[in-house]
Amino acid sequence: MSNPNVETVTSASDRVKVGLALACVVAGIAGYYALPTSPTIARVGVIFLGLALAIAIAMFSEPGRRFISFGRDAYSETRKVVWPTRKETVTTTAAVFAFAVIMALFLWITDKSIEWVLYDLILGWK
């Protein structure tokens, strides 16, 4: 069952706007490679100009507005996250490192024990 609040059909004008936005991005990248003798700042500026035009065009389409709304919602959700303190991060990292070292020792001891049983006791190889 579909959500009636979400419009899944995009109009022809929205498709054209998104296509133009993609064309601007491609043109910016093509411009970067078309100017090999220009200063790097100019070449990078062409890419940013293409991206800025693409964003400006996409903002006027329904998919672009939905994407911007999604970005705002995602940003507000990240502000709600309770990030760990430095002490919590260091403590957790130390615990993970200690577990990895203990596990490595356990696996090494297990490997050497199986090797000893197989090669020395059962097969008699020395």
Rank of each mutant, 00 (worst) to 15 (best):
37 T>H: 11
75 Y>Q: 14
48 F>H: 10
34 A>V: 05
60 F>H: 15
81 V>N: 09
18 V>R: 05
79 R>I: 11
55 I>T: 11
61 S>I: 04
61 S>P: 04
27 A>M: 09
15 R>C: 05
74 A>P: 06
16 V>C: 03
23 A>T: 13
72 R>M: 14
22 L>S: 10
30 A>V: 08
69 S>T: 12
27 A>N: 00
65 R>M: 01
67 F>I: 14
72 R>N: 13
77 E>P: 05
37 T>N: 15
66 R>V: 11
21 A>V: 05
18 V>D: 02
27 A>D: 03
21 A>Y: 05
63 P>V: 04
74 A>D: 00
65 R>L: 00
66 R>Q: 15
19 G>D: 06
54 A>S: 04
19 G>T: 09
41 I>Y: 01
47 I>M: 08
29 I>N: 01
33 Y>L: 15
58 A>Q: 03
19 G>I: 09
25 V>D: 00
40 T>F: 00
62 E>M: 08
59 M>R: 15
50 G>S: 07
73 D>C: 06
40 T>I: 12
32 Y>S: 04
42 A>K: 07
79 R>C: 10
57 I>P: 02
21 A>H: 02
57 I>F: 02
14 D>L: 05
59 M>I: 12
14 D>Y: 02
24 C>M: 13
17 K>F: 00
75 Y>S: 14
65 R>G: 02
62 E>Y: 03
50 G>Q: 02
61 S>K: 07
26 V>Q: 07
64 G>L: 08
81 V>H: 10
61 S>Y: 03
76 S>M: 13
47 I>E: 00
52 A>G: 08
63 P>S: 06
63 P>N: 07
40 T>Q: 14
18 V>N: 02
50 G>A: 01
24 C>N: 09
55 I>F: 09
63 P>C: 07
14 D>G: 04
48 F>Y: 14
32 Y>F: 15
42 A>M: 10
69 S>L: 11
69 S>Q: 13
59 M>Q: 15
45 G>H: 00
76 S>W: 05
44 V>A: 10
61 S>W: 06
46 V>M: 10
29 I>M: 09
58 A>F: 02
33 Y>G: 15
25 V>L: 11
23 A>N: 06
25 V>P: 01
41 I>D: 14
46 V>K: 02
81 V>K: 12
69 S>R: 13
59 M>F: 12
47 I>Q: 06
36 P>V: 11
67 F>G: 02
21 A>W: 03
65 R>I: 03
27 A>H: 05
